[in-house]
Simulated assay, not measured.
Amino acid sequence: MALKRTNVYADDSDLSLIKEAAARLGVSEAEIIREGIHRIALAHRVWNEPFVTDEETFDLGGPVTGEDIRSAANDSHDARERRNGGRAA
């Protein structure tokens, strides 16, 4: 991926958080900023066509319980912790 230089203005408090996160994760501040830009760009992406039409549905295999949701969230959290080696991301 080709990188392009740009200037961005940020609050001192945000820059402090970026500096702390970079030190904690052992990556550059620029890497944290690039990841943030990428995530927000994806979050605001607009697709030309909907993912599903109004006529389409998904069969999730029955009702989803609160325990199903808690279990999925815990499993996801545990996987993320393993992936990050216990470091906050």
Rank of each mutant, 00 (worst) to 15 (best):
A2C: 05
A2Q: 03
L3S: 08
K4P: 00
K4L: 04
K4R: 14
T6L: 08
T6K: 07
N7V: 02
Y9F: 13
Y9E: 05
A10C: 09
D11N: 09
D12W: 05
D12A: 06
D14F: 14
L15I: 08
S16Q: 15
S16L: 09
S16R: 14
L17G: 13
I18C: 10
I18A: 05
A21E: 09
A21C: 07
A21V: 05
A23D: 13
A23P: 05
R24D: 09
V27G: 04
S28E: 01
S28P: 03
S28W: 03
E29M: 10
A30G: 09
A30E: 08
E31F: 14
I32E: 03
I33R: 07
I33V: 14
R34G: 01
E35T: 11
G36I: 09
G36Y: 03
G36P: 01
G36F: 06
I37D: 00
H38E: 08
L42H: 10
A43C: 04
A43N: 11
H44G: 14
R45Q: 15
W47Y: 13
N48L: 13
E49V: 09
P50Y: 04
P50K: 07
F51R: 15
V52Q: 09
T53Q: 01
T53M: 00
T57R: 14
D59S: 08
L60V: 12
L60W: 02
L60E: 01
G61Y: 01
G62F: 02
G62A: 03
G62I: 00
P63T: 11
P63L: 07
T65V: 00
G66D: 06
D68H: 02
D68T: 00
R70L: 06
S71H: 10
S71Q: 09
S71C: 04
D75G: 04
D75M: 11
S76N: 15
D78R: 12
D78N: 12
R80N: 07
E81T: 12
E81C: 15
E81N: 12
E81P: 04
R82W: 06
R83G: 09
N84T: 13
N84P: 06
N84V: 05
N84I: 03
G85F: 06
G85Y: 04
G85K: 07
G86W: 08
G86L: 05
